[in-house]
Amino acid sequence: MSGAFLEVSGLVKHYGGVAALDGCSLSLRKGEVTGLIGPNGAGKTTLLNALTGLAKPEAGTVSFMGADVTGLPAHRMAALGVVRSFQIVRELSSLTVFENLLLAPPHQIGERLLGAVISRRKWWAQEHVNAAKARTLLERVGLWKLADQSSAALSGGQKKLLEVARALLLEPRLLLLDEPGAGVSPPLREEIIRLVRELKAEGLSFGIVEHDMHLVGEVCDHVHVLAEGRTLVSGSFAEATSDPRVVEAYLGLAA
């Protein structure tokens, strides 16, 4: 398994006395959409946090493209190309939709203290290049006409699309989406499914945490079922959902 794209092995993370991750091991393949499903409290979001530097695992390793990236801070993970969205949308509310996108590109000269004042011409040129990319992406997700709106004014589904568009400006290798379908109206959910498929066809890899089984079934090539901080079952969506252990974990028959 050394050729795996993202490899998680034996990850442990406690919150108080609760083991959110309890020796979790799984892998994500390049160019595929991997679903992470499981009942509430299975550790899905904690796993995503551990993969993106927002939670420090106590034990275990995370390796990305062959390099050990365990416990790297969030901005380093983003620089490596692991970018995420959030379960409860966290738009930057005092920024406009367009500014949300202009913010995202890495290596902005104008974000440096001296660069902002001295190299105005340089960052202004960069800004124009980024603005063109931002416009293309906003047109693609159907938010261009709202470009100068405050991002706080968007609907739940539009905010999810904004998050994806913003993440894409980082030119990620792996996009981790935390419940992209939650709180999204059905037409916009179809829009998100279409977008994920298109991006996968362009070579982007995904990890998706989701409760909406329709969405998971539509887009995921491979599914890991998590329960109590461990990987319970891995396989195709059909294999995973027909496994009696998965049904048990969701419905709690053993209890």
Partner: peptide
């Protein structure tokens, strides 16, 4: 400048800003 914009982003939500690198 973009420096001002990124500070506003940090003010709004530092976690998101760090997740954006």
């Amino acid at each position: 400048s973009p420096f001002g914009r990124v500070l506003r982003a940090v003010r709004d939500d530092a976690t998101v800003a760090s997740a954006l690198g």
